[in-house]
Design a protein around this nucleic acid. Structure first.
Length: 604
RNA sequence: GCGGGUGUAGCUCAGUUGGUUAGAGUAUCGGCCUGUCACGCCGAGGGUCGCGGGUUCGAGUCCCGUCACUCGCGCCA
């Protein structure tokens, strides 16, 4: 019998029942342990690790000994049962080992810039530069597999829900709204550019106009914006979907089982044993969310709720808050449960943290056995404080943090303080996935910088009340059929019931200060399509990378992406972006304003 | 664009008030060890303390600038 050239089994496959078989394994030298008479080799592949034993002094030892870790070898030999005292129950293959009769060196590895064995942290720069080595490491290797399995599950679930997968263009037109585009110069059309899609937004709406009814795609999206821990620069993937003849409730009903199902499926990944909030997901109006959680992406695992306590400070002895409230601004309160034993430093640190975040400060009141302390309590009085505590539903040992100022600023600070207080007091249950919808986003907002009304979210959303609302209501009071889905404080997706009517579209853009001609120019493809019979439609686009990040329990999105760019949107492994040849530029009719090799352009 | 953090051996880190020849673990290399599986024991090599400037008799340590990575703000319809 001849064996396969490289392997008859994988390195994770052999068991006691295979003892006596002649086998061939290939893999990387994961780790070696040299003993008096024998060399132990942990041979690793994608599937697992098998122990190979070579006797020191043998010909095979002379072949294998000089090889460094991560060299690739092929081992041929008979499966041996391990002696009872040498069984390793930590390894699935720990009942057996291989004494090779032949070893072939497939690839000898030089000394490594990044060890594969072990799970200690390495500098991001080194990891990204040598990503193929980093990806061999157990933790990220598993993350990437999880990602693949999550995507397969999403795809299967969408198809089961009756959605059809389509591919939309990658080279498309620049759109004036939204994020900065990545531009691609046209060779054929001097001076003209394609743009990479920020999302297949218009294409998916056009698919509805084209009558396809239920679309989805694991869609690449490109946005030239700066990175965050949960935002990979440049490109990311969305589970993009759209459906026709639907209300907001229909969209929720279609996607909730998909998301709930995929989170349930992977909640116990790596034995993490987490639970998922039951269906249907909670719905929270935007304004309520901003009040109670100080955020439009609340972490519902956090039990603390913000309360507006402005009214309590009207005419208060604490003059600062009294004048803030009398000036039309607000005071928001965040509970600090069971902090009666906390030092003054705990409260002062929260205040300096707020200042470091750019806020004037975070007020506080301590409470022990129903007695309030701190400067605010001293001036506001015990009775006044009791009234506040009662309104907040506090116990006798719960302190309070106060965020005061303009409503938007106070809400934001209260939200950040809510998160920070819960983290400091360890109140967040990490074993849960808590989903909610944020609904009823405002259609418009006042842009303080431009001094005009502008779209607050997506200009293609249908206003609630449709044309009549646009014509009769204060624009800032109009709500949109616009919604976000949030899990554990992470915004997974934004979506909307779209505005499919040209008349309503023109009116909405008019309120935001755009003429009909501008709409016709910038959104020609879509507005024209809507003139020839367009179905009411809506959808959403949950972020795939963020879903995987939550399931993998990673704080950083790069841990679930194969080849991510760094914070400055550079691919350190492939050296992108890079300079191109003069010939390439000439073909594209481009002359650089920066001298080649001059480095990044500096602002004056 | 702005703010915070970090930067000391290949890697993870320590380094006192500014004071002798900058240390530990790990990795590497050599030796020892009848079975390890994070093996163990002994030994060795390995440093422009990110870079530049300044203060000082003397700087890893203090000051200024700069670079890299990262977290956040702005930005992300």
């Amino acid at each position: 019998m001849t064996l396969h050239a490289y392997r008859t089994h994988t390195c994770g496959q052999l068991r006691a029942t295979d003892v006596g078989q002649e086998v061939r394994l290939s893999g990387w030298i994961h780790r070696t342990r040299e003993h008096a008479n024998v060399l132990f080799i942990d041979l690793r592949d994608h599937y697992g690790v098998t122990q190979v034993i070579v006797e020191t002094g043998s010909e095979l030892f002379k072949l294998v000994d000089p090889l460094g870790p991560e060299s690739v070898i092929t081992v041929t030999g008979t499966v041996s049962a391990r002696a009872p005292e040498t069984l390793n129950d930590k390894l699935p293959t720990g009942e057996i080992e291989i004494f090779p009769t032949a070893i072939a060196v497939q690839s000898s590895a030089e000394s490594l810039p990044l060890p594969v064995f072990g799970d200690i942290d390495y500098p991001e720069e080194v990891r990204l530069k040598n990503r193929y080595l980093d990806l061999r490491r157990e933790r990220i290797h598993k993350n990437i597999l999880l990602r693949s399995n999550v995507i397969a599950s999403l795809r299967r679930r969408m198809i089961e829900q009756g959605f059809t997968e389509f591919q939309t263009p990658i080279l498309t037109a620049s759109s004036p709204e939204g994020a900065r585009d990545y531009l691609v110069p046209s060779r054929v059309h001097p001076g003209k550019f394609y743009a990479l899609p920020q999302a297949p937004q218009m294409f998916k709406q056009l698919l509805m106009v084209a009558g396809f009814d239920k679309y989805f795609q694991i869609a690449p999206c490109f946005r030239d914006e700066d990175a965050r821990a949960d935002r990979s620069p440049g490109e990311f993937y969305q589970l993009d979907f759209e459906m026709s003849y639907v209300t907001q409730d229909d969209v929720f009903a279609a996607i909730e089982p998909v998301l709930h199902g995929v989170f349930e499926e992977f909640a116990d990944w790596e034995g993490k044993g987490r639970s998922v909030s039951p269906l249907p997901f909670k719905r929270i109006p935007y304004r309520e969310s901003m009040l109670k959680y100080g955020s439009d992406k609340p972490d519902l695992r956090n039990p603390l709720l913000v309360t507006d306590v402005s009214d309590f400070f009207k005419g208060s002895g604490f003059g600062r808050f009294a004048s803030i409230v009398e000036g039309g601004d607000v005071v928001r309160a965040v509970p600090a449960p069971n902090t009666h034993e906390k030092s003054r430093k705990f409260f002062d640190d929260m205040n300096s943290w707020a200042q470091s975040e750019g806020f004037p400060g975070l007020g506080y009141a301590t409470q022990k056995d129903g007695v309030f302390g701190g400067p605010i309590a001293n001036n506001h009085g015990q009775d006044g404080m009791k009234a506040i505590a009662e309104a907040m539903g506090l116990g006798p040992n719960d302190g309070i943090f106060f965020a005061a100022g303009k409503e938007s600023q106070a809400a934001k600070l209260a939200g950040l303080a809510r998160t920070r207080a819960a983290e400091q007091l360890e109140l967040i249950d990490k074993s849960r996935f808590e989903f909610c919808w944020i609904v009823d986003f405002p259609m418009f907002e006042y842009d303080e910088e431009a001094k005009k009304v502008d779209f607050s979210h997506n200009p293609f959303s249908m206003p609630q009340g449709e044309l009549e609302a646009l014509e009769s209501k204060d624009p800032l009071d109009i709500l949109a059929w616009q919604y976000d889905i949030v899990c554990n404080g992470v915004e997974l997706s934004s979506g909307a019931i779209r505005n499919h009517r040209p008349d309503i579209m023109y009116k909405a853009f008019e309120i935001a200060g755009y003429s009909q001609a501008e709409v016709d120019t910038n959104f020609a493809g879509m507005i024209n399509a809507f003139k020839f019979g367009a179905p009411p439609h809506g959808g959403s686009a949950p972020g795939v990378d963020r879903i995987v990040m939550l399931l993998a329990d990673e704080p950083n999105i790069r841990e679930v992406i194969l080849f991510p760019m760094n914070q400055k949107a550079e691919d350190l492994m492939m050296n992108a972006p890079s300079e191109v040849s003069a010939k390439q530029l000439k073909e594209l009719h481009i002359r650089l304003a920066v001298a080649p090799g001059a480095g990044p352009a500096k602002a004056e």
